[in-house]
Computed example of a mutant assay.
Amino acid sequence: MRLWIAVTGLFVLKAWQLKLATKGYVMAENSVPSMDYAEHEKTYSGFIAFSKLGVVTVLNFMLCLLVFGFGGAWASVIGTVGVLASLLACAIGLFMGQNGWRPAAIVLVVFGLLTVLSVS
């Protein structure tokens, strides 16, 4: 009985392969194309640039939360300006490529000084 199932299974498999081959389909080949290293490097450098921008932007938002939480009378105004400046710097940085973290870093330094003045 097992032999019959095995023979029937092989027959069905061969018939299926023949049907696919007549329709223009072929079975998968075991050839691996060579890797495109230039595209890989481009993707990796884009990932690193986006990661840098993301880290600096998150630090900006952490400063905004610090101002909202511990700031004085003008905390909501300074915090709102900080959030808007961070979003604008992030949007500009997305279009700058490898140096996209720099506008967000400038906002981080300026807003950090304002945070020190408003919290103390």
Rank of each mutant, 00 (worst) to 15 (best):
G54C: 06
L65W: 11
L13R: 04
Q17Y: 13
K23I: 12
G72R: 07
G24L: 07
V7E: 11
F68D: 02
A85N: 04
V7Y: 06
D36R: 05
S45Q: 11
F50D: 04
G9I: 11
L20H: 08
T80L: 10
P33H: 08
G71E: 00
A15W: 15
G46M: 06
H40L: 13
F68C: 00
V56R: 00
K42Y: 08
I78D: 04
V81M: 04
V83Q: 00
K19G: 14
I78G: 02
L63C: 02
V58C: 09
Y37V: 11
M27I: 13
V67L: 02
K23P: 09
K19Y: 09
K52W: 05
D36S: 03
L18K: 12
V83H: 02
V67Q: 00
A28Y: 09
S31C: 13
Y25D: 00
T8I: 09
G72W: 10
L59W: 02
T8N: 11
G82L: 03
L65K: 07
L53H: 01
V12S: 10
Q17M: 12
G72K: 08
T80H: 05
V83R: 00
F11D: 06
I78F: 04
I78S: 02
K42R: 13
V32I: 14
F68K: 00
P33Y: 12
T8H: 11
Y44I: 03
F61V: 03
A15L: 15
M62K: 06
V58A: 14
A85D: 00
W74N: 08
F68P: 01
G9F: 13
F47L: 02
L53I: 01
N60A: 06
V55M: 08
I5L: 15
T22M: 11
N60T: 01
V58D: 10
W16Y: 15
T57Q: 01
A28M: 11
F47I: 02
K19R: 14
V77Y: 09
T57P: 03
I78W: 00
K14T: 06
W16L: 14
V32P: 09
A21D: 06
A21Y: 10
V26A: 13
K42C: 02
V26S: 13
W74T: 06
M27T: 12
L20I: 06
S31N: 14
S34T: 11
S51P: 11
Y37L: 13
M62F: 07
G54V: 07
V67S: 03
I48F: 14
Q17S: 15
Q17H: 12
F61Q: 02
F68G: 01
S76Q: 04
A28L: 15
A85M: 04
S31P: 02
F50G: 03
G54E: 01
A21F: 14
L65Q: 07
V83E: 01
T80D: 06
W16M: 12
E39R: 13
L59H: 07
G69D: 06
E29R: 15
A6G: 12
H40G: 13
T43W: 05
A75T: 00
Y25A: 05
I78H: 03
V7A: 12
M35I: 15
G69I: 09
G82T: 07
